[in-house]
Design a protein around this nucleic acid. Structure first.
Length: 479
RNA sequence: CGGGGUGUAGCGCAGUUGGUAGCGCACAGCGUUUGGGACGCUGGGGUCGUGGGUUCGAGUCCCUCCACCCCGACCA
């Protein structure tokens, strides 16, 4: 039974996505093109994403700081590839205080430039290293085509920026973030399985030595980059003159990294788990994990039902993020639909019959309709719900992993590749050039998402050039 | 930046040969309701995206501009 106001996925996936965003009250369009207002429910999900990431970022030894929104234009121009990559999409401030500025200020599209310039100031000796700083910030990129959460002119993110004494340390940092912070968070909290690997030259960050990424599969088989971690080598250290003195008294350039994930993760969450009934949020991320809907007709029924709910709530203590929907002017049916739309993992219904029998109706969001509804004794209900939340978390992950597996095809020929990317990912031997990659994109709209870390033992022939190689790549159309 | 589309009440839309703006939902009040999106009655709410033109008269015809949405190329 599809919800009012939601276009079924099968009919128009893209419209379905936009419907979920507005019907679940995650975001609204703002008066400024490409900018969105993140509404309380959408922001609450983002806050849980922030909390989970922040905790992991700190657990791996990083600290938070804040750098300014404005960057002198000249700073952005210091790293050649960086300029080329970002110049076309920056917003520039040319006036302030009613006067023309001596030097235009760029609204940060990312903060390598401003942070690099500060690191040059702060780092003197090998004893100052490593510097491990993260910031939570907004950035602006003047994109041509925008979609809520997936690509907006202004977006929220975290960006980590570190400086190290050696290449090995920088490389280890880059990979640690990818595995222990990003992949771990996205898989465990967001219940979203990811592919981990390296980006090709064509796809890497402007100015980086190497870019690593995690990629997730959406329900239409397209890929979404869920996080990136860059080993910047000494490129930015050279551009911003970040040097340190070694124990044996030499001046060396530092090795830097940067890494980020954004509000785009909210988009990933929607497209990975939700259905035609609305949003589905994994329990560990859900702002409200359990909603209780009281059912009653007369006043005395109402007070009996509410007494039971109060008692249960006390028994559970602060065990769940719980909401009792005691709005009086809405019918239970309306509330059921609304909370399904908003993706609350578990709904408990308590009415006069349940009060009498010591029971409750419990519905799980990941199994829509009657099949997901069970009648459970009030005694032990808290444990039942705790177990159910775990089940839902696991089931969402397993479902997404199964889907990703089924839709990832090993292909040998270019024709097979073309067909595979129509519905999902294609895994193929790859020994082509950046030019070859570009041609494949023109012809199939698919790009290499990652060169995965897990590679085959045996050699094969490149899907495009026919050259023998041991390297495989994942091709897909991407958001 | 190319292609397509849409601008009329908060939202979704209708508006006939040009004649002075309406429907559904939402909202407010009252009453009855409440186990899967309740019902009745009453009520409030509009410089019809902007600027110009044609006309006695424009939501409607003509021109200009603007905004937003969708599809592509660029990107987290």
């Amino acid at each position: 039974m599809p919800k009012e106001g939601i276009t079924p996925r099968a009919q128009d996936y893209s419209q379905w996505y936009l419907d979920i965003v507005s019907e679940a009250e995650l975001a609204d369009y703002s008066p400024v093109r490409g900018c969105m207002v993140i509404k309380p429910h959408g922001y609450a999900i983002w806050e849980h994403i922030q909390a989970g990431l922040d905790q992991r970022i700190k657990a791996t030894g990083h600290v938070n700081a804040y750098f300014p929104l404005f960057i002198p234009m000249s700073f952005l121009m210091k790293e050649a590839e960086h300029v080329e990559g970002f110049a076309p999409e920056v917003a520039v401030v040319t006036r302030g205080g009613g006067e023309e500025l001596a030097e235009p200020l760029v609204v940060r599209p990312t903060s390598e430039a401003i942070i690099g310039s500060m690191y040059a100031k702060w780092i003197r000796s090998w004893r100052d290293l490593p510097v491990l700083i993260n910031q939570w910030a907004n950035v602006v990129r003047w994109e041509m085509r925008t979609r809520p959460f997936l690509r907006t002119t202004e977006f929220l993110w975290q960006e980590g920026h570190t400086a190290h004494a050696t290449e090995e340390e920088a490389e280890a940092e880059t990979l640690k973030i990818l595995h222990e912070v990003y992949a771990d968070f996205v898989e465990r909290e967001m219940a979203l399985p990811v592919l981990r690997g390296r980006k090709t030259e064509k796809e890497k960050f402007a100015g980086a030595l190497r870019t690593y990424a995690i990629e997730a599969m959406m329900q239409d088989g397209r890929a979404l980059q869920a996080g990136t971690s860059h080993n910047l080598g000494q490129n930015f250290a050279r551009a911003f003159d970040i040097t340190y003195q070694t124990p044996d008294n030499r001046q060396e350039y530092a090795w830097t990294t940067s890494w980020g994930v954004s509000t785009r993760l909210v988009g990933a969450l929607i497209m990975a788990h939700s259905d035609d009934e609305g949003l589905v949020v994994p329990p560990r991320l859900a702002p409200v994990q359990v909603v209780v809907v009281p059912i009653y007709k007369r006043d005395e029924e109402r007070s009996l039902v509410m007494q039971t709910i109060d008692r249960l709530q006390q028994e559970w203590g602060g065990r769940f993020r719980l909401k009792v929907d005691d709005r009086d002017h809405l019918t239970p049916g309306f509330k059921f639909n609304e909370w399904e739309l908003k993706g609350v993992p578990v709904r408990v219904e308590i009415g006069p019959r349940d009060v009498e029998k010591g029971m409750a109706a419990v519905a799980r969001r990941d199994v829509p309709g009657k099949q997901g509804k069970a009648f459970v004794e009030q005694a032990g209900l808290g444990d039942y719900i705790a177990g159910l939340l775990n089940d839902i978390q696991r089931e969402l992950f397993d479902r997404a992993r199964r889907f990703q597996k089924e839709r990832t095809l090993e292909v040998r020929t270019y024709d097979e590749l073309k067909e595979a990317v129509e519905t999902g990912f294609a895994r193929a031997y790859w020994a082509g050039t950046t030019e070859d990659e570009r041609r494949i994109q023109d012809e199939t709209r698919a790009t290499i998402r990652v060169i995965p870390f897990d590679q085959p033992e045996t050699a094969g022939r490149c899907v495009y050039t026919g050259k023998e190689t041991t390297q495989q790549a994942i091709f897909a159309r991407a958001y």
